[in-house]
């Protein structure tokens, strides 16, 4: 007489439970993206004539290529600033007691959960003609006329870096927490200085966290529509706003669809480069 089917694993649940969400994604996520792709392969706005016209238009138009290039560059700049500023935060986090750790985490976390319009609005107040930076510099007598900070590349990069900083810092804190502290001591007692230990031991071992953070920061920075348009102003055009203008203002849906697909592919390419680097570094870092 068989006891109940012994092979039945009580610790896992059937894949059937994933069916509702899988179906939901199929209908409302995969299907729209496929339709977007389908429409991008049409030369006319009505979607009657097949062709690669939209892609040819984008790829032969210096203006469009310029927008794509400046968007990808913007992402790289923001990611670099986030890494340089975010790493020391993660480092400091591992050095302080539990009380301060919670405070640091909450400081890092708050902007992530505060409305992005609010965060961007703050930078308008700070960078504007009457903003804090100009007011301070003027009252100190360093400048006579206000500097132009808003609507500049510098302004967009610094505002985006602040907005996306949590996405970089949180994975770094996780990665640094997994490094065996004895390695640090061993390196120092073998005669390596703090700087050398940092660049030869800590930095390579935290590569998985660095790559995870860079992926999230980059992907978020190049799609940050609100911050790009409010701090960048009308003179600077990046891919999200370009897409929105073509779709909404000009009602040129096939071209907007082609822009979306090109943008999607660009993001996927960057993410897969980071993922490949991550896989390679995993053997190195050992902290998957």
């Amino acid at each position: 007489m068989g006891v109940a089917p012994a092979a039945r694993d009580v610790t896992s649940y059937g894949m059937g439970l994933a069916a509702p969400l899988a179906l939901f994604f199929l209908v409302f996520f995969v299907a729209p993206l496929l339709q977007l792709f389908w429409l991008s392969l049409h030369n006319d706005t009505a979607g009657l004539h097949w062709g690669l016209g939209q892609y040819l238009h984008f790829l032969t138009d210096p203006f469009s290529l310029g927008v794509l290039g400046s968007t990808l560059l913007l992402g790289a700049e923001v990611t670099a600033v986030c890494l340089v500023l975010g790493f020391p935060i993660a480092w400091l986090y591992q050095r302080v007691g539990p009380k301060l750790q919670t405070i640091i985490i909450l400081i890092v976390l708050l902007p992530l959960l505060t409305s992005v319009v609010v965060r961007t609005f703050a930078w308008i107040v700070i960078l504007g003609r009457q903003g804090i930076i100009n007011a301070t510099l003027q009252s100190l007598g360093i400048i006579d006329t206000p500097l132009k900070l808003l609507y500049t590349q510098f302004g967009v990069v610094i505002a985006l870096a602040q907005v996306q900083m949590p996405l970089m810092t949180l994975p770094l804190i996780t990665a640094l927490g997994r490094i065996d502290p004895n390695l640090d001591d061993a390196s120092c007692s073998l005669g390596a200085g703090s700087w050398r230990t940092f660049f030869r031991i800590v930095l390579p071992l935290s590569l998985p966290g660095i790559i995870a953070g860079c992926t999230l920061t980059y992907a978020a920075a190049i799609t940050a529509f609100i911050t790009q348009s409010l701090v960048g102003g009308g003179q600077m055009l990046f891919m999200p706003m370009y897409l929105y203008q073509q779709a909404s203002t000009l009602q040129n849906w096939p071209f907007a669809a082609a822009i979306s697909i090109i943008f999607l592919l660009a993001v996927l390419a960057v993410v897969s480069v980071f993922t490949t680097l991550g896989r390679m570094s995993r053997g190195y870092g050992g902290a998957g």
């Binding site: 480092w91 965060r119 703090s194």
Partner: peptide, 27 residues
């Protein structure tokens, strides 16, 4: 050498934390 390292890292970390929190306070 150790002091210079800790000083640089701590200063950057504090500046970064100020940059993160300042905009909300300003608003």
């Amino acid at each position: 050498e150790a002091i210079s390292f800790e000083l640089v890292m701590t200063v950057i970390a504090v500046i970064a934390l100020v940059i993160i929190i300042a905009p909300s306070l300003v608003v």
